[in-house]
Simulated assay, not measured.
Amino acid sequence: MLTCDRCDGQMSDGARCSICLKSLDFACSGITEAGYRKLGVRQSNWKCPTCKAGSTSKAGSGFSEKIEKLEKRVHTIETAQKEIPALKDRIKYLEDFNDKNQWLRSNNIEIKGVPMKDRENLLEIVTSIGNKIIYPVTRPSINFNFKSHNSGGDKTKPIIVSFLNRYLKEDFVAAARSFNTLRPVDIGLVGTGRIFVNDYLTVQNTLLLSKAKSLAKENDFDYVLVKNTIILVRKNSQSPVISIKKEKNLQKIQ
């Protein structure tokens, strides 16, 4: 005789749980004797009500966890979507701010590569450069000039020059580029590096120019230059000129 593990009653036969390995009489097992017999080889996988409930509970728990994770993801997406308009407004504000800041620099140039020296006279340096590139400048044509704090090295802080108007500035830059290679020795200073005369770009546009140059190199573009503070790229001398005013315009360099 066998003993039912649930009611402790005596039984001649019963059902055996494949999980807890307990033997139950048919009254406690929740299955009829005929039903259990019909299981045949599947009797080895039969579960008692307690173990079956436990398995269902675990499955339900796992399903609930998945639902909870899905709800969190949906909440994150919904939150992000609500923030998109504010982010767009912020981007638009920053772009407008950069455009206004760049407009304020329309008459300005940045001269890099001039070695520092004691008691230097920036106006004399600018005048010397003008004479060398055959575009003489006088004091009345310049609003102001100063040494920038943004520097790639202690000995070559950029000189910022503000001309009386944009046309003087553009002609000065064009003359410097036509001269091709300008060095400190050309203006009476000691040094072997090069002097560069360019538009005075904002930090954001300087980064944009750097990205444009990198992409142009990767995609075999021959020309990258700045004219009137606008970045221009060109595949070759027969290709159309592409203006790079915003980050999204970089997609055109391909």
Rank of each mutant, 00 (worst) to 15 (best):
N108E: 13
S141W: 06
G191R: 06
W46G: 06
K47E: 09
K211A: 14
K217L: 02
V41N: 10
S55Q: 13
A216F: 06
F196P: 00
K47I: 02
F172D: 01
N219K: 12
D118C: 02
E78F: 02
S210H: 15
C28L: 03
T79H: 07
E124I: 04
V190Q: 14
L164M: 10
F144K: 11
S57I: 08
G152K: 11
R194D: 03
T32F: 03
K92R: 05
L208N: 10
P158F: 01
K252F: 12
R177M: 03
T127A: 14
K22W: 02
F26K: 12
S64L: 13
F97D: 12
W103L: 12
L209C: 09
L2G: 01
C7P: 01
S128W: 03
T192E: 09
N165A: 08
I231Y: 07
S55W: 06
K100Y: 13
N145M: 15
K58G: 05
A59E: 12
T202W: 10
G14R: 10
F179L: 01
R194I: 05
V114F: 01
T79I: 01
T76R: 08
I242G: 07
Q238V: 09
V233F: 09
Q102A: 13
L123C: 04
F63W: 11
L123N: 07
F146T: 13
R177Q: 06
L123Q: 11
S148E: 07
D171H: 05
P136I: 12
G62S: 14
D89M: 15
L94C: 06
Q43W: 01
I109C: 06
S128E: 11
T206F: 09
N143L: 08
F196K: 03
D13E: 07
K252V: 05
P184R: 08
S210C: 10
T229A: 10
P240S: 00
F221D: 13
I195V: 00
N45H: 08
A176S: 12
E33M: 04
K246Y: 03
K217S: 06
V197N: 06
T181S: 10
N107R: 15
N45C: 02
G40W: 07
E65Y: 04
T202H: 10
G35Q: 07
N228Q: 03
R119A: 11
I142Q: 01
Q251I: 15
D5H: 11
K132T: 09
F221C: 13
Q254M: 08
E78N: 14
G30D: 00
V241W: 04
L225S: 08
K235A: 08
